[in-house]
């Protein structure tokens, strides 16, 4: 089967569930259907792999350190909260 003659309806159904598939939030039957479809449809397989990679990039994006000056400022603000107004 080529990407030109694959089952478009099945393709659309799969497309809607790709994130749940990646997150392991689908039942076994739905997972098996997606795996089978992706094995036979280059367009959907590509979509799945690029989406998986997008998620992986997001999960590995680096954090920035807190600027020391802000950290000091935050400490001062916390120390100066009127303690009687709350706790």
């Amino acid at each position: 089967m080529t990407s030109a003659d694959h089952d478009h309806k099945h393709c659309l159904e799969m497309f809607q569930k790709l994130s749940e598939f990646i997150d392991g939030e689908l039942d076994h039957v739905s997972c098996a259907e997606i795996e089978k479809h992706a094995d036979n449809c280059v367009a959907c397989f590509t979509c799945l792999e690029t989406l998986k990679r997008t998620v992986a990039i997001c999960k590995n994006v680096k954090d920035q350190p807190v600027p020391q000056e802000f950290s000091r400022k935050l400490k001062e603000i916390i120390q100066n909260i009127p303690k009687t107004t709350s706790l």
Binding site: S3, F15, V42, A43, T46, N60
Partner: peptide, 30 residues
């Protein structure tokens, strides 16, 4: 976002989704 509605339906997985993740991640990508 559906491939059918985009100008070019992909016919292969691009390199950026295939190469090891650690070789892809850098400051510019972040």
């Amino acid at each position: 976002f559906h491939p059918e509605n985009q100008t070019d339906v992909p016919d292969h997985v691009p390199d950026w989704a295939l190469i090891p993740l650690d070789k892809l991640l850098n400051q510019e990508l972040s």
